[in-house]
């Protein structure tokens, strides 16, 4: 249970696939025009991540090293096709608005990176949990970016109008340029927080070292 929570924290915060590892930029830029789209994309990718990690891990002893990338891609594209068909059947409006980005989950670098870096070296259960936590981290990043873009660029949140009739939305943010600008600012904010954390740790280290050195000076 403890390791489960640690893996979850690692995926969502410390080692977030989008905001820290900077993987999977295409869907992050393209599907964050509204919170609903972002949530749909994030959860679809999470489902694929969990199952592809699980199966890559189960098959890790049978897949020869030389053809492993091709094998992973076949596993991943199989699950992407399943998710695509399920969404087409049960969530058709979401499927229509995400369009081609559902099949493009196949080439999302996060999924291949986790298969190669984690699932191919670990047991099935931790691999599935890794898929879940990385997927939720990806979803969290998408929600962050899409919230900013939808509120400022459209004046709504999840389709609910926030500021009434008088608000003139900054359309730039829902345009392609706005995607790059918003994601840049969000990642800058994340870097700011990480810098502050690092600075704090360094200051603590210094303050731990300092008293010793002053004591030494006194003894000398």
């Amino acid at each position: 249970m403890k390791s489960f929570l640690r893996q979850l924290k690692e995926g969502i915060l410390d080692n977030n696939p989008t905001l820290v590892q900077l993987l999977g930029m295409c869907p992050t830029l393209a599907t964050t025009t509204s919170v609903q789209n972002a949530l749909g994309m994030g959860l679809a990718a999470t489902a694929v991540l969990i199952f592809s990690n699980l199966f890559v891990s189960l098959l890790r002893k049978f897949i020869p090293k030389q053809v492993r990338i091709a094998a992973y891609i076949v596993i991943i594209s199989g699950f992407v096709t399943m998710v695509e068909l399920l969404m087409k059947a049960y969530l058709n409006s979401l499927y229509q608005s995400l369009g081609i980005f559902i099949p493009l989950i196949v080439v999302n670098c996060i999924i291949l990176a986790r298969a190669e870096a984690f699932a191919s070296k670990n047991k099935p259960l931790p691999s599935a949990i890794d898929g879940l936590s990385m997927g939720l981290g990806f979803t969290f990043a998408l929600l962050l970016v899409s919230t900013v873009r939808e509120i400022i660029g459209n004046g709504t949140f999840c389709g609910i109008s926030l500021f009434g009739e008088g608000y003139a939305p900054a359309l730039l943010l829902v345009m392609p340029a706005g995607a790059f600008l918003t994601l840049g600012c969000v990642i800058a904010a994340v870097q700011k927080i990480r810098n502050m954390g690092e600075d704090k740790a360094r200051m603590e280290k210094l303050s731990q070292v300092e008293p010793e050195s002053t004591e030494k000076e006194e003894t000398v």
């Binding site: 706005g178 790059f180 600008l181 994601l183 840049g184 600012c185 990642i187 870097q191």
Partner: peptide, 8 residues
């Protein structure tokens, strides 16, 4: 981040 802003 600044790379993304430039791309924007």
């Amino acid at each position: 981040p600044i790379t993304l802003i430039a791309a924007g």
